[in-house]
């Protein structure tokens, strides 16, 4: 039985002994990254594979609210080939929109194929360090900033983009990989540093370690003051 989860537009079901997440498939019959499709009562759902998506991992780890809702406009930084972004596109639905940005041509090539099927998601080959270069290519204000870029200065990139594009009281999610900030420092030390840095500008409403899905990763859910 597929039923609503506690998170907006996210569903869950028991598969064997595991609880899996799903989203309603915006593009019927199409699997984006090999995930399984399920049908129930004339609706199609895509499995949201938790060890391929940090957002799914955060939800399974008990994150009470991602802030992402139907009809939202999302700026997604570090979309890669669109695994997580495609589920975000399912969540916001056909009246929402996802600006999916990544600076690596190789992965954006695959992202283009995903976007061609999803009319609520556009690819941008841009560097998240330079919001100036894409400010005219996306909405003036977005409801959500989601970032997963695995860069040394990811907190700084995050704040810069939230400052420029996130609406007041909008949500901002940061998937933080400790090792890309500093290979040798202890993850807990890095999490603390980043927490201090982003809480100067944003209100952190949830912080969740992603083990065992991802080692030394943490998801921050924040809100703009």
């Amino acid at each position: 039985m597929i039923k609503k989860s506690k998170i907006f537009e996210v569903y869950e079901t028991q598969l064997g002994r595991r609880n899996i997440l799903l989203t309603k498939n915006l593009v019927k019959g199409v699997s984006v990254y090999g995930e399984r499709l399920f049908n129930q009562d004339g609706e199609e759902y895509r499995e949201w594979v938790s060890n391929k998506s940090k957002l799914a991992a955060a939800i399974l780890k008990g994150c009470p609210n991602t802030g992402i809702r139907k009809d939202d406009v999302v700026l997604y930084l570090g979309a890669a080939s669109g695994t997580t972004a495609s589920h975000v596109s399912d969540i916001v639905g056909e009246n929402g929109f996802v600006f999916a940005l990544d600076f690596a041509p190789r992965v954006v090539r695959d992202l283009v194929f995903v976007c061609e099927k999803r009319k609520n998601m556009a690819p941008l080959l841009e560097d998240a360090n330079n919001p100036e270069s894409y400010k005219d290519k996306i909405s003036k204000e977005v409801d959500i900033v989601y970032q997963d870029v695995a860069q040394k200065n990811q907190a700084q990139i995050f704040l810069k983009n939230c400052d420029m594009f996130l609406k007041k009281e909008g949500y901002a999610l940061l998937a933080l990989k400790a090792r890309s900030v500093d290979v040798s420092a202890k993850p807990s030390v890095i999490f603390k540093k980043v927490r201090e840095e982003i809480s100067k500008k944003l209100i952190i409403i949830d912080e969740r370690k992603l083990e065992p899905f991802e080692m030394d990763h943490c998801m921050f859910v924040c809100k703009k003051k």
Binding site: F97, F99, V108, V112, C115, E116, K119, N120, A122, P123, L124, L125, K137, I138, S139
Partner: peptide, 11 residues
Amino acid sequence: DFYKKNLEETK
């Protein structure tokens, strides 16, 4: 508009 322009430019 955003969709079309970005898709084109990205390609």
